[in-house]
Amino acid sequence: MFSRRDDPRAICRFIFEGQPLEAKAGDSVAAALLAAGITQFRTTPATGAPRGPWCLMGVCFDCLVDIDGQANRQACQVTVAEGMAVRRMYGPRP
């Protein structure tokens, strides 16, 4: 899916669905998940269809995830942080 260019940025560790993942400091949450091979971020409220990021610039709202207990965060607009807990969102919006 995606590979990393050589990148001197520091490693940043976060949690996705209870599993530890590594990102680069400064990555958006969306970039960090895509770099880890994760393309499905949520399922839709209307039909439960799988979704992942489309625009990576804050327009499409398809990358919505739960971050540290707060739902409906745009993964492309939030910078990943050490220890951050990210979860998928399923079905109807809370």
């Binding site: 990393r4 680069k24 770099a35 269809a49 979704r51």
Partner: peptide, 25 residues
């Protein structure tokens, strides 16, 4: 076009610019 793995070309380019991510295949 709503399936995960479908993205805007601009989105893929943003990942390259901002996170050094290279699209494979």
């Amino acid at each position: 076009w709503t399936l995960p793995g479908a993205m805007g070309a601009g989105g893929v380019q943003i990942l390259l610019k901002s996170a050094n991510l290279l699209p494979q295949g």
